[in-house]
């Protein structure tokens, strides 16, 4: 049951991700990204990580894709298909990606080919929160400072006036 659910969500994620990287309309690519990230959230749900799935939907679909759409709007991205969106080196890029997939996939199958995941529910907000505030407090605080620094950096960059 879990395997079937995971396979369906994974297939949707792969198809949507392919459309994201080959689509010739930028805004459509951004909207397909919503489907890809949502399907990955479904995969997290099938792996019993419900809190991560919810955070994925909130942060990625709710914030990051909206930011990307705002950036597309502010950079006057055209709605019509752009044939020049993909460069002439796309066959080379496809070759690199295929070789990388072959190497990584062979390594993964070789190393973990016989392992099984037992379905256990341990992905609630309580478990993750206990873990964060018990064992990972310092990384959590450092990460919050990093987020603050990134925000200040983004504001400083966008407030910059033209010199002279």
């Amino acid at each position: 049951m879990t395997t079937a659910l995971f396979s369906v969500a994974g297939a949707v994620a792969v198809v949507a991700a392919v459309v994201v990287v080959v689509s010739r309309r930028i805004v459509h690519a951004a909207l397909w990204l919503v489907l890809a990230l949502g399907a990955v959230a479904g995969c997290f749900g099938a792996l019993q990580a419900e809190f991560v799935a919810l955070v994925q939907i909130l942060v990625y679909v709710g914030a990051i894709v909206v930011l990307v759409l705002f950036a597309l709007m502010l950079t006057k991205a055209p709605m019509k298909p752009l044939p020049e969106l993909t460069t002439g080196r796309s066959p080379f890029a496809a070759g690199v990606a295929a070789v990388l997939a072959l190497i990584l996939g062979a390594g993964v199958v070789f190393a973990f080919g016989n392992e099984k995941i037992k379905p256990v529910t341990d992905g609630s907000a309580k478990t993750v929160g206990t873990q964060i505030f018990k064992n990972w407090v310092l990384p959590f605080e450092v990460l919050s400072v990093l987020l603050l620094a990134a925000l200040i950096g983004a504001i400083a960059l966008s407030q910059r006036k033209k010199e002279d």
Binding site: T2, T3, F6, S7, G10, A13, V14, A17, V18, V20, V21, V40, C43, L47, T86, T87, R89, S90, F92, A93, A94, V96, A97, A98, L100, A101, L104, G105, V108, V109, F112, G113, E115, K116, I117, P119
Partner: peptide
């Protein structure tokens, strides 16, 4: 569920991302 299923899905997604960055 076999462990390779999510791992292979991750490999495929990562390589699609690599293609996108390069192309």
């Amino acid at each position: 569920m076999p462990l390779v299923l999510p791992l292979l899905l991750a490999v495929v997604l990562f390589c699609i991302g690599v293609y996108g960055v390069l192309a």
